[in-house]
């Protein structure tokens, strides 16, 4: 097992495209879950409508710069549709409806009925040429040793982490304001917030729509990097990557999603490398029954266990304050 190579690959993943994309996506989810207490189990649906909104716009002859607001608008409308029937009810109803909507949307864009627009199971490709044409970075490799990225990746990463920075500033403005304080009050106790004259339903709807729009941006960013949207990429698992990241970094903290995403993708890639090495290269008796295709599922099972562990023992994140944690154990 080449531990150095595994560590370097993990390090690349920690600042790579998925890390940037999920930092952005998790910033949206953090507004919903961390600041407002909403259980949006269909965050992937917002990523999907963002990506498809943009891809379809380009496919129909529009510019990608028109596609971006279209994708955001689609996410805002989705937030309205999902939030309206559920946000007056207990927290679990939103979870039920959003997780269902995520799956239904995936099936819908996959269907032959929507195929004229979405191209069904084949998806839409090469809609981001306009973005890559703008790349000012000369052809070449940038970095040291194995830790190198080509000019295309650097350009994409530049976009990704800039979006993360912008979204963080946006959230900083919002959450440090009286608006953000009202959101946190709702997270703590809806009835108390109502008794103080806060329009709880309106705030929750806003949180769902704004967080969803940020999720849509993340979906667009991932799609731009891959130059591809395909329905089968938008599985429910993606929502829970974001959940794990938010909880890792500390829900309701400004930099939590960024820190969480970097740690998450480092661990994800590291585990992948180590497990592949153990199962494929090494001759360990009880692992003989497994082969390389089992690495993915085992990692997802570990990921589920990690989410459980975090939620039970570290609900305030890896670096959450003890004091806050004690209060939370109500």
């Amino acid at each position: 097992m080449d531990i150095v190579k595994i560590l370097i690959d993990a390090g690349r993943a920690a600042i790579g495209v998925p890390a940037a994309a999920y930092a952005l996506s998790s910033i949206g989810l953090n507004l919903q879950f961390g600041y407002t207490g909403l259980l949006n189990f269909g965050h992937v649906a917002f990523m999907l409508v963002g990506a498809y909104g943009m891809a379809i716009t380009v496919d129909l002859g529009g510019s990608i710069w028109l596609g971006v607001p279209v994708g955001i608008l689609a996410a805002v409308i989705l937030g309205l549709i999902l939030g309206f029937p559920t946000l007056r009810l207990r927290a679990d109803y939103l979870a039920i409806v959003t997780i269902a909507a995520g799956e239904i949307l995936r099936l819908a864009v996959r269907s032959s009925w929507a195929a004229p627009l979405t191209k069904g199971i084949f998806g839409i490709q090469r809609f981001a040429d306009e973005f890559f044409d703008l790349n000012p970075i000369p052809v070449g490799l940038y970095g040291i040793g194995r830790f190198r990225f080509d000019e295309r990746t650097v350009w994409v990463l530049l976009l990704g982490w800039s979006l993360v920075a912008l979204a963080t500033v946006f959230l900083w403005k919002l959450t440090r304001s009286p608006w953000g304080r009202a959101m946190r009050a709702i997270r703590e106790d809806e009835d108390a917030a109502l008794s103080l004259g806060k329009n709880v339903f309106g705030y929750k709807l806003q949180s769902l729509m704004i967080g969803g729009a940020i999720g849509a941006l993340a979906g667009m960013f991932l799609a731009i990097d891959q130059q591809n949207v395909n329905p089968d990429a938008y599985i429910p698992l993606l929502t829970f990557y974001a959940f794990t990241i938010v909880i890792l970094g500390g829900p309701g903290t400004l930099f939590g999603p960024i820190v969480g995403s970097v740690i998450f993708w480092f661990l994800f890639e590291f585990l992948d490398g180590v497990m592949t090495a153990l199962i494929v290269e090494m001759d360990i008796g009880f692992l003989d029954a497994l082969d390389a295709t089992d690495v993915g599922p085992i990692r997802f099972a570990l990921f589920g266990a990690g989410l459980m562990w975090l939620m039970i023992y570290r609900p305030q994140g890896l670096f959450g304050s003890k004091e806050e944690m004690l209060i939370d154990a109500r």
Binding site: K173, P178, R181, E188
Partner: peptide
């Protein structure tokens, strides 16, 4: 509101606050 400070508990209760709307906050 357990994870708000005492002062925040007080401040959140004020009404007709322009900073409590989305656009107002920004």
């Amino acid at each position: 509101l357990a994870r708000l400070t005492v002062m925040e508990n007080m401040m959140v209760a004020t009404k007709d606050h322009v900073g409590e709307s989305f656009w107002g906050a920004l």
